[in-house]
Amino acid sequence: MNLQVKKIPFNKTFAVRHPVLRAGKPVETCYFEGDELPTTTHFGLFLEEKLLGVLSVFKNECPIIESKKAYQYRGMAILAPYQNKKYGVLLLDAANTWVAEEQGDLIWFNAREKAIGFYKRNGFTIFGTVFDIANIGPHVLMFKYL
């Protein structure tokens, strides 16, 4: 099995963001403010040539946790048939390595409640309590210092 993580253009993320994160909503909702910035990097997990998962990394200071150079993860998603197979770990590890190479000192994101266990198993910590993102659902802020 030939799994590879590669950088991709932001619009390629929609093929995974839409069915996993924005099902039933217009495809336009897959665009995140800052997607097209040169400081944003998008990663795709491929099996041969098939895109299975995505993760976007935004150079963005955390509004709550102090750092010198923070990166925010957004839109991490794995297509349903490929979930719970440890593929997400490959994507997360590649992004973590990239952030470390960029001398980032903090990774943070808003995690959906159902993904908290996955992120905890991969070294992230919850900060604060559950909050609701309108039209998306309950989330928690999670982080990891590098």
Rank of each mutant, 00 (worst) to 15 (best):
G75W: 01
W108N: 04
K86R: 15
H42A: 02
A100M: 14
A100S: 15
L90F: 14
G75L: 00
G117I: 04
F58M: 10
W108Q: 03
I107K: 10
A70G: 13
Q72I: 09
F58C: 04
S56H: 07
I78W: 06
R121K: 15
E61R: 12
G88M: 04
F118K: 05
L45M: 02
P38F: 01
K85D: 05
Y119E: 08
A77M: 03
K68R: 14
W108P: 07
E101R: 06
N96S: 11
N110Y: 12
F43T: 02
A77P: 03
A115K: 05
A95I: 04
G117A: 12
Y82Q: 05
T97G: 09
T41F: 09
G53C: 02
K114D: 11
A111Q: 08
L51I: 01
E36L: 06
T97L: 10
G44L: 00
T39C: 01
V89Y: 11
F46T: 00
K69I: 12
E101N: 10
L106H: 08
T40C: 04
L45K: 02
S56M: 08
Q72M: 13
V57Y: 03
V54D: 03
L37E: 11
L106N: 10
M76Q: 08
G117M: 08
L106E: 04
I116L: 11
I116R: 08
L37P: 03
K59P: 07
A111M: 09
E102H: 12
W98P: 01
Y71F: 15
D93Y: 10
L55A: 04
L47Q: 14
E48A: 11
V54E: 02
L106A: 09
C62F: 02
